[in-house]
Design a protein around this nucleic acid. Structure first.
Lengths: 249, 249
DNA sequence: CGATCGTTTGAGTTTGATCAAATGTGGTGG
DNA sequence: CCACCACATTTGATCAAACTCAAACGATCG
């Protein structure tokens, strides 16, 4: 199970060996992208579905006057909308933040998967719904939360998402963003990001260095930012919970 | 064609009579909601897919301390995620802003539609993708744009969306929100919304009274807010364009 | 060893928030 | 018809959060 997508989907349901290998076969067409290289750019014709296998990437939009807003992060296992190919052109860009490995699943393969494996299809829909929920939460984040809360909330979300694909190390995960990029994510200036980071460090809530984020006090960070993980729908009450239980015994 | 959903989908593709009547049959189970009444609340078990037939509604999330963020508007013809029922519980609420008529399409009916009508299914996917694109644009809006730009951008979007379902009157459309609700949409204080509205009026760009928004100078408003309608994927280059052309001749 | 990029710091400014009060506006009941 | 109430809008004054500009500092890399 070295496919992060499969690890992610396991949070929603159990997948059969058949389903797993079908997914794996679709991921053969993978290519490498350099740090800060676009995987696909605003205005491009849409093609297959992009799946991040390794690395870290983001969706972003650029305004005519150059302002940039990052609207989503891609953690390994994340894919862009299953149905992108329905649209003619991309209305935003996807860029690798660090060197990344991205699989492209052709429209045909997507349709084959969804035609043959209903259970897998449900899992992919789940992933899509979670992606949408995250976008909504980001609106709440920039719309309502203060700079400190905003950043804290983002960090909580990231840890949860890395955990969901087993790519955390305890309360640490990779976060290879510059402060400028963090600013473009949070709707703040880079100077203010710097000061907000310092404040979080001062309160001994996090450390962030060398592209690694460590959350020293997750509970405090969650409380500070009103973080409620429900929107991630990491539904440990179902399959995975039972599996976790079995392993625990 | 008095079903706003069908009018909306016509922006993407031509639907056969069969497909149209299939959709219409699914909309029989409709109920009325009073102004400011919740259609479905955060934490509720998910049920069928909600489709707004008449009125105006919004998605919103409430933080523990009472702050509220509206994360989406529903214009007639809009539906919430086709696959909500995959999730156990709602992570946000949907509320009627004014008295509204909402159809509930059962999961079974959704599955039947998508099994039988591939073309219709593509159209529904398109609608879902547009919804996601709007959410991303809202992140850009609150993240990067100034109060004035933000409000102008929202108004442009609204007009385009009402146009897409033929519910505009020239450059006017319904906008039955209080300034407090506008504030909760734009991530501003209600006081500042008031002043920003005044500024837009002072520049003779809009009027807003009695729940009706009129855009007096759409071009100027678009320019002011860097509004680029691409993200709405109202693809007049395809079917509808041809239809419009035919009608024009 | 410059050159480049990212981070940090300081000072001054601006945007937008908060608080408080006044002013419409529509609806209800006497 | 008017008094009253609830609610929304408008205005003013004050204040804080966050931005901008500018410069310095520190890594890393060819």
């Amino acid at each position: 199970m070295n496919n992060p997508l499969l690890r992610k989907l396991a949070n929603f349901t159990h997948l059969s060996d058949d389903e797993c290998s079908a997914v794996n076969q679709c991921c053969n067409d993978a290519s490498e992208f350099a740090a800060r290289e676009d995987v696909i750019s605003q205005g491009d014709r849409t093609g297959g579905v992009k799946l991040l296998l390794e690395g870290f990437a983001c969706r972003y939009k650029v305004l005519e006057d150059g302002r940039r807003q990052i609207v989503a992060y891609f953690v390994p296992g994340d894919l862009c909308d299953l149905r992108v190919f329905i649209l003619k052109r991309m209305d935003h860009s996807i860029g690798a933040v660090i060197a990344s490995k991205v699989a492209t699943i052709s429209p045909e393969n997507v349709l084959q998967l969804t035609n043959r494996y209903p259970n897998l299809t449900r899992a992919l829909w789940w992933a899509t719904l979670v992606e949408e929920a995250i976008a909504r939460e980001w609106i709440v984040n920039v719309g309502q939360r203060s700079a400190l809360e905003r950043m804290a909330h983002l960090f909580c979300e990231l840890l949860y998402r890395f955990r969901a694909v087993d790519l955390n190390h305890g309360n640490s995960c990779t976060l290879p963003l510059t402060q400028v990029e963090l600013a473009e994510t949070l709707g703040l200036s880079s100077v203010h990001v710097n000061r907000t980071l310092q404040e979080l460090r001062r309160q001994n809530l996090i450390t962030l260095e060398g592209g690694t984020l460590t959350i020293q006090d997750l509970e405090a960070l969650k409380e500070l930012s009103f973080f409620n993980p429900d929107y991630l729908h990491l539904d440990y009450s179902s399959e995975k919970a039972r599996q976790v239980e079995r392993e625990a015994n």
